[in-house]
Design a protein around this nucleic acid. Structure first.
Length: 445
DNA sequence: TGTTCATGG
DNA sequence: TATCCATGAACA
């Protein structure tokens, strides 16, 4: 992997300076609240452990195995459920042992499965908070951000990693309670919507993909869901759309194929029982001749053939073209000035330039945002960056101005500089009240 | 140290 | 016909 020209050099040079500046700024931490959360989590964990250890199945396991049960050991948990209690093993680890991940455990419907998972969540949240507190000095933590670790020329973060702090799970999102703005300030988060898909449209020039990311009246995930489940586009329920988004469309973009996609979706629709205008999805499928996994998989196979053969045929051709280029030359070049070389699998070749360049749009925006802050003598500070989003500690009275500048830079100016961005970009903003934690961010406008 | 599981994009 | 890229912790 190397830089091929001044565009790439410039990004790394100014990008490094920016990330260094961010690192020096640091993030304000509510240390007292952190300590309270740790204590509260410990109590909840003790409660879980108590119930787990009292369960007759665990006691019997300890007796027969002549060992103290450790609920943090996935080896032991897997052994308990899938060997000792003989639940059906639906998933193996790479080395052939029964998997003890969240999915596998939930499928047992055993009363302590949920407790073990809750314990895992609490433990990780507690570890995250401990990790942050241990590296906080004078109320501020200074995470590292790097540009030299990732094969795609994305960034990474460590000590502590600010790029994988939980946000979806309500228990774990408690970690965000301790991340607060400077006194009197607000936290502003902005993120590029669907930027990887937008960048994929730029690289591939696929007319249908370009239309989907350009025309807000269209909806790719809804249309694909409509095709897979044979229902009118307007009848696609939101949760089903979102399942298809991750389980089929993105999986396909990343290089998956019909069989694993079909397995994932088939399992999901059995667990989550969607209904289409009052009719259970499974009955609806049966009415359309799909009554078992084999017929569903066969159908998904045909949807996949249409996906790459018709819907996104230019994307498919680009994938072949770029891979052939890599095989011939031993490298591929990105729009942002980098040469990707060395051993890459086919799926990597078709994904790296997209992933890297999507991040570079954010990086460019942040570099110029910092420049604006300096030139206008503004007091807001950039404090973190998460691949397609930025986190700003906003000084009182500067909020609207900061939002305006980000909007201008990230959706207009970047397109004047990088003509390869041939589709519109969209940014959404979320903000907290003054002095309130990151967990309380609300949509802005 | 390799494996597994967790989180984020 | 391998779902892309990371970091961190615990266990064995």
């Amino acid at each position: 992997m190397r830089i091929i020209d001044l565009r790439g050099y410039d990004l790394l040079h100014h990008g490094s300076l920016l990330l260094g500046r961010m690192e020096m700024n640091g993030i304000h931490i509510d240390v007292e609240r952190g300590k309270r959360e740790l204590a509260a989590m410990q109590e909840e964990m003790d409660e879980c452990i108590n119930i787990i250890m009292k369960h007759p199945d665990v006691k019997e396991w300890q007796h027969k195995r002549r060992k103290h049960f450790n609920p943090n050991s996935s080896d032991q948990v897997g052994d308990l459920f899938f060997r000792f209690l003989d639940f059906e093993m639906t998933k193996q680890t790479e080395t052939g042992k029964p998997s003890a991940d969240a999915d596998s455990l939930l499928q047992t419907h055993h009363p302590i499965a949920k407790l073990i998972l809750k314990l895992r969540q609490l433990k990780q949240a507690q570890d995250d908070i401990k990790d942050i507190l241990s590296q906080t000095v004078g109320g501020y933590v200074h995470p590292s951000f790097h540009l030299h670790n990732v094969s795609t020329f994305r960034s990474s973060s460590s000590n502590p990693n600010m790029q994988n702090i939980p946000v979806r799970d309500s228990e774990m999102a408690r970690v965000r309670h301790i991340i607060i703005p400077r006194p009197g300030n607000q936290l502003l988060e902005f993120d590029f919507k669907g930027i990887e898909v937008a960048v994929a449209a730029c690289y591939t020039g696929d007319q249908n993909l370009i239309r989907y990311v350009t025309d807000p009246k269209t909806d790719m995930h809804r249309d694909v869901a409509s095709q897979i489940f044979m229902i009118p586009p307007d009848d696609v329920p939101k949760p089903l759309r979102s399942m298809v988004k991750g389980g089929f469309t993105f999986a396909q973009f990343y290089g998956s194929w019909w069989k694993p996609c079909a397995e994932y979706m088939w399992k999901d629709i059995h667990e989550n029982g969607y209904s289409i205008s009052g009719i259970p999805l499974l009955s609806h499928l049966k009415q359309n001749g799909i009554g078992d996994f084999e017929s569903f998989a066969e159908h998904v196979r045909s949807v996949e053939a249409d996906f790459w053969g018709n819907r996104f045929c230019e994307y498919a051709r680009w994938k072949e073209r770029i891979y052939a280029e890599y095989v011939k030359n031993g490298y591929i070049d990105t729009f942002t000035g980098f040469r990707l070389q060395g051993y890459m699998r086919k799926n990597a070749v078709t994904n790296y330039p997209i992933q890297g360049s999507a991040f570079h749009i954010l990086l460019w925006t942040l570099i110029h945002l910092q420049k604006a802050f300096d030139e206008l003598k503004m007091k807001s500070k950039i404090i973190a960056e998460i691949h397609d989003s930025g986190l700003i500690d906003v000084f009182p009275g500067e909020l609207e101005r900061v939002v305006y500048i980000i909007q201008k830079l990230g959706t207009e100016y970047v397109r004047k500089v990088w003509k390869w961005i041939i589709v519109p970009l969209r940014i959404e903003f979320e903000v907290t009240e003054p002095n309130r934690p990151w967990s309380e961010k609300k949509p802005h406008r």
